[in-house]
Amino acid sequence: MTSQQANGVELGIESFGRDTDPLVLLAGGTTMLSWPDALCERLAAGGRRVVRYDLRDCGASTTVDPEAPAYSLRDLAADAAALVGALGATTAHLAGIGVGGMVAQVAALDHPDAFSALTLVGTRPVAPGPVDDDLPDHHAATIHALFSRPRPDWTDRTAVAAYAADGAELLGNDPEQVRTTAARIWDRTPSTEPAVQQANQLAMVFARLDCAPRWRERLGDLALPTLVVHGRVDPFFPVGNGEALATAIPAARLLVLDKMGTAIPDTAADKLAAAMLER
């Protein structure tokens, strides 16, 4: 793992595969560890240069004040486009998961020449906040149970990992995979300050981010091959959001993974890699 300057900020990155292979850029949601090692390794084995990266205020990327971000969703989209050039590539297959999927949608719309293909995992076509009437919102009981739990001691690695594992089943995820990932995220977080830890563990920065203007009405302009992936049991962004994305983007392919919640399970790495390599 290292970092790369792009668009005036440092972005934490990790690379897999040969530098001469076509680039697949994986936008974190918000940390790069949203993308499992197994998936990155399978994409690299399929002849791709894979670079996963942290969004701002996460991991090894520029961290200033997650509670008052002085940048917008458009800035994060510009980071993705600039990173392609900074890595020495002409274009990239861009993939985003969760809130990183919102970054990927806007990046592909605002910077079409930078991207050759698009993968959107577990995301939706509108910003955080109230959803459109035709989109399913967060499962209310699940979200209440998830966020009503006492927060952990953010200075305690074991407590943070246990907190993540305890909420995993509520989100349709594997507790042990989540525990391991949360511990790795803790290790890479530059501070134990609660705001910084929550930005890494819970993507809280997006609740404070300027995501205007809307982009859903522009999705029909996307002309690049697109794969939309969604978990059947995702209670945070229910599967109807993925279905709406696939309907709005011309010729998009929808892949619904029956046993997936909000996180990509290691067991889905082969299937997801194969679908992405077709783009």
Rank of each mutant, 00 (worst) to 15 (best):
V84Q: 02
G88H: 06
A89C: 13
A89G: 11
A89Q: 12
T91V: 08
T91A: 09
A92R: 00
L94D: 06
L94E: 08
L94W: 11
A95E: 10
G96R: 12
I97N: 08
I97V: 15
G98F: 04
G98W: 03
V99F: 12
G100V: 10
G101C: 10
G101A: 11
V103A: 12
A104E: 11
V106M: 04
D110A: 15
P112I: 10
D113C: 00
D113V: 02
F115H: 10
S116C: 13
S116N: 13
A117F: 11
T119G: 07
T119E: 11
V121F: 07
V121K: 00
V121Y: 02
G122E: 02
T123W: 02
T123P: 03
R124I: 07
R124Q: 15
V126M: 06
V126L: 10
A127I: 00
A127F: 01
A127D: 00
P130Q: 10
P130S: 09
P130D: 13
V131N: 03
D132Q: 14
D132K: 11
D132W: 09
D134W: 03
L135A: 05
L135K: 05
D137Y: 06
H138N: 11
H139D: 15
H139I: 13
A140K: 09
A140H: 12
T142Y: 05
I143N: 08
H144G: 05
H144D: 14
H144Y: 10
A145R: 15
L146F: 14
S148F: 01
S148W: 04
R149V: 12
P150F: 07
R151K: 14
R151L: 15
R151C: 05
P152C: 09
P152Y: 06
D156R: 00
R157G: 01
R157V: 01
R157N: 01
T158E: 15
T158R: 12
A159H: 11
V160E: 00
V160A: 02
A161S: 06
A162R: 14
Y163K: 03
A164Y: 02
A164R: 06
A165L: 09
D166S: 14
D166P: 03
D166W: 00
G167N: 08
G167M: 07
G167Q: 03
G167R: 01
A168G: 05
E169R: 15
L170Q: 05
L170P: 03
L170G: 07
L171Q: 02
L171T: 02
G172C: 08
G172D: 10
N173I: 02
N173G: 06
D174I: 12
P175R: 04
E176F: 09
V178P: 00
T180I: 08
T180W: 08
T181E: 05
A182L: 04
A182Y: 01
A183D: 08
A183M: 10
A183N: 05
A183I: 04
R184Q: 15
R184I: 04
I185K: 00
I185W: 00
D187S: 13
R188D: 15
R188H: 14
P190C: 11
S191G: 11
S191C: 13
S191P: 12
A195T: 06
V196D: 02
Q198N: 07
Q198A: 15
Q198V: 06
Q198W: 05
N200G: 01
L202K: 11
A203W: 03
M204C: 07
F206T: 07
R208F: 10
L209I: 10
L209P: 08
D210R: 09
C211S: 14
C211K: 04
A212L: 02
A212V: 01
